[in-house]
Design a binder for these strands. Structure first.
Lengths: 277, 277
DNA sequence: GAATCCAATTGATTGTGATCAAATGGCTGT
DNA sequence: ACAGCCATTTGATCACAATCAATTGGATTC
């Protein structure tokens, strides 16, 4: 699916070159003990027990078709902070997040940064133009990825229409999520931005873990730094911190640690997020 | 391609209901004099002379295949200011812009608005979730659209792999354009935003009309209002106006009319756009 | 050509979030 | 337990874009 495109990619970026995780071996699918429990010549159906399957590209496949599709996949582990790829790198692989969280970001030459998304379980990573990625991708915490080479992905897309339409659907959802975030960046106040961010984290948790009805309180984990949150919301760390404090003093959230937020009034938080308050 | 999705669409929006252009007839393809020159039972190959073809969804098709593909399309005309569809409207059609320009926007309940894109010749319109559009779409100037029903689009996508892969490619480009714009909204200064906007308009013009080499000056048309520009860039009209004045006083642009800008130093404008200056 | 209307521009002031700076808190390792 | 380190929070000040307000300009109508 990553095909020939014409789009102006401006300039090569050199900058600091952090740990790119290139030393990480691309373990053959089925050989990772934490996924399959055993190894061998015959590929195990690790896809069947994959925690990301329900949310991922492959969600439309099951049984024999799923394991056949999975044959061409490999896995990769990243430690917190490791870089998966950089903007302008050759787009060789197409990834799906199995566990952990990855941040995608674009930078200006003077260091200003915009995080364009946090990718977690089930999300895909690897869009680009002209055979090159269009953003930096870095692990926020320890991450496990399922990956295909781009050529393999392309043939699989042609072969499995369910995967193709699921990718289409996911890209469509992605576009709308980005438009949503543009509204946030361009027009929302800091308190609306932070509230919106926390609500999204809550919704994501409900999507993954299931939501109890009538819940007005949720526990949210924020594995990323305040700097990451600031660069995602178009704020400074100080404003992020102050705004979180404000929400705390309003009795809407409680901070257990700086990484663990307990939302005590989700309803009110949603009102704030949408600027209705 | 617009299939079943799960995505939280918040609330119904009522608001002001402007002219939705519903009285406009959906002329059968080939019957519009401005496109085909004559009408009749036999469909004319208006696709072959379509100005959008090179840039559009159908760019991969030619000859008999193209005209067969075009059979299921219809055309629609909108006058400046008319609404094509509203957020949350049922997503019945998938559009391609033939001529003119459409703005896509999302609104907050208190009237704050973010324009998520200006769509012109060749661009597609009509993404949504759960069978509903996710943005308002309004004509900026007089617009001609080529449209398919969503079911027809889906069958055509399955039938014509070139169209399918082209749509994929276009959606991919769209995602990256949106990410780019997020960087602008979150991290760029007013002068960078305006410069960036003007550069994009220039690039678009080059893409459509072809670029003479070594050109350092371009004439750009801005059919949208200052309010639209402000809502696209996350600024106020006053700041848009002042910033344009600043660029004028820097000798980088000249205003022929408020809608017609002559860029006299495209190179410098590009530097400003990227924050390199 | 004058009057009307609306968009765009320019001017004056304010307020909010950025910036600069210091303090606190939570880890790590010894 | 303490030092050292870094992330986060809190504090003080500032600057820039938003706001409020007035003027200009261009198009349309009579």
């Amino acid at each position: 699916m990553v095909e020939n495109m014409t789009y102006n990619v401006a300039l090569e970026k050199t900058k600091h070159a952090p740990d790119r995780g290139d030393h990480e071996t691309l373990d053959q699918a089925g050989k990772l003990s934490f996924l399959s429990g055993h190894s061998g010549q015959v590929k195990t159906d690790y896809c069947k027990s994959c925690g990301a399957h329900r949310l991922a590209l492959c969600s439309g496949l099951k049984g024999a078709e799923l394991s056949q599709f999975g044959q061409k996949s490999k896995h990769k582990k990243l430690n917190a902070g490791q870089m998966l790829f950089g903007e302008f790198d050759e787009a060789k692989y197409f990834y799906t997040v199995v566990s952990g969280e990855v941040r995608l970001s674009r930078m200006l030459d003077d260091g200003r940064r915009q995080i364009t998304g946090f990718k977690s379980t089930g999300d895909f990573i690897g869009l680009g133009v002209d055979g090159h990625y269009a953003a930096d991708a870095e692990a926020i915490d320890d991450v496990v990825l399922c990956l295909f080479t781009v050529p393999n992905m392309n043939t699989s897309l042609a072969e499995y229409t369910e995967v193709q339409s699921r990718l289409m659907e996911m890209m469509q959802t992605e576009v709308i999520k980005l438009q949503n975030h543009m509204l946030l960046l361009g027009r929302k106040t800091p308190i609306e931005k932070i509230s919106n961010f926390l609500c999204e984290r809550a919704n994501r948790k409900f999507l993954v873990e299931g939501q109890e009805d009538e819940t007005n309180s949720v526990e949210i984990r924020l594995p990323m730094s305040r700097t990451d949150i600031a660069d995602f919301l178009g704020l400074t760390i100080e404003t992020v911190s102050r705004t979180i404090t404000k929400l705390r003093k309003l009795g809407i959230i409680e901070l257990q640690t700086s990484q663990n937020v307990l939302v005590t009034d989700l309803y009110e938080l949603q009102l704030l997020a949408n600027g209705d308050a």
